[in-house]
Design a binder for these strands. Sequence first.
DNA 1: CGCTTCTATGAAAACGTTTTCGTAATAGCA
DNA 2: TGCTATTACGAAAACGTTTTCATAGAAGCG
Lengths: 337, 337
Amino acid sequence: MVSMKDIAARCNVSVATVSKALNGYSDIGKKKREEIQAAAKEMGYFPNSSARALKTNRTYDLGILFADNLQSGLTHDYFAAILDSFKVTAEMRGYDITFTSMNMVANRRMSYYEHCRYRGLDGVVIANIDFTTPEVLELVRSNLPVVTIDYLFDGRIAIVSDNVKGMKDLVDYVCGMGHTKVAYIHGDDNSVTRDRISSFHRALYTHGITVPDSYILKSRYRDGDTTMYRMQELLAMQDRPTCVFTPDDFSAVGAYHAVQEAGLRIPEDISIVGYDGIPISRALFPKLTTLMQDTKQIGRKAAQELIALIETPKTTLIEKCLIEGTLLEGASVRKLG
Amino acid sequence: MVSMKDIAARCNVSVATVSKALNGYSDIGKKKREEIQAAAKEMGYFPNSSARALKTNRTYDLGILFADNLQSGLTHDYFAAILDSFKVTAEMRGYDITFTSMNMVANRRMSYYEHCRYRGLDGVVIANIDFTTPEVLELVRSNLPVVTIDYLFDGRIAIVSDNVKGMKDLVDYVCGMGHTKVAYIHGDDNSVTRDRISSFHRALYTHGITVPDSYILKSRYRDGDTTMYRMQELLAMQDRPTCVFTPDDFSAVGAYHAVQEAGLRIPEDISIVGYDGIPISRALFPKLTTLMQDTKQIGRKAAQELIALIETPKTTLIEKCLIEGTLLEGASVRKLG
DNA sequence: CGCTTCTATGAAAACGTTTTCGTAATAGCA
DNA sequence: TGCTATTACGAAAACGTTTTCATAGAAGCG
């Protein structure tokens, strides 16, 4: 590999001069600078990020911490879309992206934090993971620039999808269609779920509706089977709801199954809404009415904030950035009355 | 950050000794080695990958080259699943994963190859991209270890899903269900598509069936709308097929739409098969009969081969690794006769 | 005991940069 | 012309490792 030393030799200058010329310092004469740049291009020179990182303590490499168990991280439509957007933005700003894992190095398992230090990552974004594990806490409490997605830590920037507003929009829509008997099969207990549940209750309350406890059922995110069972329980009730909220679009498929297997129709016999607005919601029959989270914006904002934190820490506000979604109307909610 | 120098000072030894002790060299006394290791742990020492890479020319970092336009790479279920599996395997072997893009560095756009050199990547896997662009060719012709997925280059290891066998299995199944009038709406022209089309014809031929040209239509992968239009054309034919092959599971959704909007039923009025075996195929009503590609195996094999190429180049065969899929039976193909 | 052979350790160079500081040459100015 | 200020460049140290080679001392051996 051709290094600055080679260019220096070829141009009869010092490596220092080459470095400055290539990095556009002002104290190199125009003529010499251009000569050096031409030589660099001609010789196929390319900088070495390791050497540069060693000297500057900056890698221009960002870590992404996703659940690293199969079938959870990359194949999760919502987070995959966020990651995609994050990647696009980061790359435009000149940053690369490396997965942060708990790899082996030097014969022992690294923690996430150690891994970030090892690779000299400039910052890390955390998403879709159990935020309460010691390893995640270690990372969050470290002095590394961190941005979290859909989870709040004190003193850390968080990008969160506005679940309160989203759920309110969904409820408003459903109530607007005349529904008063509304059930919610919700996902695993976490802050996102809690936001959605409270917003669900509050929004219905403003429409003068109180939901009986029996209408609130627990399933799990992206778990079609469990959601199907919960749906079957709802269908079996003597006073069954006219509209059912599901944890997310993917598990809504389970609800669809339950309805169809019971010989009923959507939305004629029962209405269903989802959450996420991922492609599968457009593929279902009838199309699912759902709330589309703005994954593009979430990913972009996460990258922007993280880079701001790295490049201009003094002027970067530590705050929670709420990203609103939009209602995606399908044909899964019947107009009543 | 605590470095080897600090440990050396603390233990009254040289950095060389520390390095050897920590890397398990045999020429350091047991007592001293343990003392140094203990000190390292106590002081919170962690190696610096940049310094190590600078010295050894090895980064233990693998590049993945995916289509970097939004909505194509990470959000593509098939490739996301492969990537997920690749990542798991690579991490178990101690490698990290970095996206290879055409970032800006030193005020100019890097090619993929330059990017790999810049980061000192040990190898790179290429998938889901236009393999004919100059930038990809530059990378493939370089001396970097490369593994491609679903595409063949001379002198390079390729992991390819067995589309010939897969399509044959699908055809055999469909013929076994008594179908003789079979159409194929296929995807964009590339080697995968060509394999599938020839295998489609050949397999039908062995069942004594020749397919009229009018039954072969061109759509695009993951394009539900175009596939829907093609399906409508097929439905409008006076002598229409009894079974239709679609480009992939995702675009099959378009075919489902066309059928339903025509007031017809699947599979009673027309049968449909997909390709991929991604989650959406299980969500459709009726469940889609499709061929599930073994993404887990493809990703794992890609990582294994790439690492073998890096670590033991002499003994690694350059070959095409065919990975078979399995037929996933749904209820979208009607039993005839 | 004198010789060789290990064993355990360290000195130093090297990897490819960046950056500070010093200095020679030139320019500006009275 | 003599002075200072500016410009243009280079020497050298440093970043944190790895690795080669040298060497002091211990051990083996007759």
